[in-house]
């Protein structure tokens, strides 16, 4: 089987002296430069600007409370059972309110173990745990990533801050 090799046409004079092609290339880089200078480019200047994340973005958890401040969680331990990363620890105790029966005495999420799959949110029968859009919760020690109930009930406030930032930037 014969393979027909198509040779490219020989370069014309203007192609061989490079200069038109160089000028064309210079034009292209200049166009990009002007575009970037005029439109500010495509970069999101992160610490000052924030990317708008989708509403189903999964980051730091929050444990919502009722209007009276009582935590919604009933310590059924569904979340810690379903958690594929074993990030959730729950210890139950009896609640004074006979209608609630159980509440969490100790509830802790290790955000370093968490894989942010959202199963805990899905499985919760009382809508008592959510994943927020707040992805900015770095600290410089491992203990700082152990979120107990005291902190988890307050992270909802951070979400509204994040949304305010997004709206300001865009």
């Amino acid at each position: 089987m014969a393979i027909i090799v198509k040779k490219p046409a020989p370069l014309t004079f203007w192609e061989r002296i490079y200069l038109p092609a160089i000028l064309k290339g210079l034009g292209m880089t200049m166009r990009h430069m002007i575009k970037t200078l005029a439109g500010g480019g495509v970069t999101i200047r992160y610490p000052e600007q924030h990317k708008r994340v989708p509403n189903n973005y999964r980051a730091l958890h929050v444990m919502p409370t009722w209007e009276d401040g009582h935590i919604k969680c009933v310590a059924c331990e569904m979340c810690s059972t379903v958690c594929p990363a074993n990030a959730i620890t729950v210890h139950a105790e009896e609640d004074e309110n006979p209608e609630i029966e159980k509440r969490a005495a100790f509830y802790e999420i290790d955000e370093l173990r968490c894989i942010f799959c959202g199963f805990c949110e899905e499985v919760c029968p009382r809508d008592a745990i959510h994943l927020t859009k707040n992805y900015e919760f770095v600290t410089d020690n491992r203990e700082g990533f152990l979120y107990g109930m005291d902190r988890l009930t307050k992270t909802g406030r951070l979400v509204s801050e994040l949304e305010a930032k997004e709206n300001k930037d865009r």
């Binding site: 200049m30 990009h32 575009k35 970037t36 200078l37 480019g41 495509v42 970069t43 200047r45």
Partner: peptide, 10 residues
């Protein structure tokens, strides 16, 4: 700076 601008960067 200019190299950044030409490459759509900051």
């Amino acid at each position: 700076k200019f190299s950044a601008f030409m490459q759509d960067r900051i």
